[in-house]
């Protein structure tokens, strides 16, 4: 083996190993930051009465047919999100389920819909920009006219949100888009608009977070009138004694944060919300990709090196006994 080739291979190997083995150096991409005018939801499980008005309103707003006749919409049988529902309310129950918002022998409600991640996996993985995050509002939208149906977003979303149609010849992805089409009409997301108690509150994320902090700081039992609809609208739901909260705003730090925040009286895992690290998965993945492929410089260099070595070897063997190309 000649010296120059040995050096090249050594350099290439060291480069490759360094590139994949050492994320976390200067090239590391950190979590994306909260967009300047981020909009989102605050879902407070302790205020949710399980009426599922939001499930029906969501279907109406997004032109999704009801699973039951309209008059029985409150009995809607959608138990999971998908093409037939972009938002569902799920129940946790334990033992005799006698007390609301209690882990043991209690019950609680959970809302499942897109979390509008600050650093969304779905946007990072989508090869054709069919998942996009609005630079100002941070709303994560889906553009089905772009989508190739690879379902990388379905498989990689840490909350299992995007869904696909497996029984259609021309299928599409479905996912909550925070009713971005209603914003143009000056309306707020249907779930927040329809929620009678204020359990689902819409608004700028900083206001929502302040509201969440205020609620966590309350002494259990304090009479509190929660805001309804949109944060700062001055509309209120019925006053209720504050529950004992789990002292955590879900979505504040999870994978770099989400624009949909949750409060609960029972541990979040019980509501199907996983315990997650602070660093976003997208940033880990993109750090690897960017380290290897920054400006395609490394691949170009390797290619040039390969061309050099191969042409020299070929020339050498053309004079030798191994000629057979």
């Amino acid at each position: 083996m000649s010296i120059s080739r040995r050096n090249f291979l050594k350099a290439a190997t060291v480069g490759a190993v360094a590139a994949v083995a050492a994320p976390g150096d200067a090239a590391a991409r950190g979590n994306l930051a909260m967009p300047p005018q981020a909009l989102g939801l605050l879902f407070d499980s302790t205020y949710c009465v399980g009426c599922k008005a939001c499930v029906t309103a969501c279907k109406q707003a997004n032109a999704i047919p009801f699973a039951t006749p309209v008059r029985e919409a409150h009995r809607d049988t959608s138990i999971d999100i998908g093409a037939g529902a972009l938002n569902v309310i799920k129940a946790y129950r334990h033992g005799d389920a006698s007390v609301k918002d209690r882990e043991i022998n209690g019950f609680a409600f959970a809302k499942k819909s897109c979390m509008h991640c600050v650093d969304p996996s779905c946007v990072s993985v989508c090869p054709v920009s069919a998942m996009q995050k609005a630079p100002l509002t941070g709303i994560v939208s889906h553009h089905k006219e772009n989508c190739i149906g690879c379902r990388y977003c379905v498989a990689s979303c840490p909350y299992g949100v995007p869904r696909f149609e497996y029984d259609q010849a021309f299928p599409a992805i479905s996912k909550c888009q925070l009713c971005r089409h209603l914003r143009d009409e000056g309306r707020i997301p249907a779930c927040a608009e329809s929620c009678p108690t204020g359990a689902t509150l819409y608004g700028p994320v900083d206001l929502l977070k302040r509201e969440a902090e205020r609620r966590l700081a309350m002494t259990p039992g304090t009479l509190y009138k929660p805001e309804r609809g949109q944060a700062g609208s001055g509309e209120f739901g019925r006053p209720r004694a504050a529950s004992t909260y789990v002292q955590h705003i879900y979505g504040d730090k999870e994978l770099g944060g989400t624009q949909v925040l949750h409060l609960s009286g029972v541990p979040f895992e019980k509501l199907g919300m996983p315990t997650l690290p602070d660093r976003s998965y997208a940033s880990v993945s993109e750090t690897i990709q960017h380290t290897i492929y920054a400006g395609m410089a490394a691949p170009a260099l390797v290619l040039a090196g390969l061309v050099g070595i191969i042409s020299r070897n070929k020339k050498k063997s053309e004079h030798g006994p191994e000629d057979r190309s």
């Binding site: 090869p127 989508c147 190739i148």
Partner: peptide, 12 residues
């Protein structure tokens, strides 16, 4: 075969 919306494949 595995692309659900194969007709958009050229977008890549």
């Amino acid at each position: 075969v595995d692309l659900g919306r194969y007709w958009n494949m050229w977008h890549m």
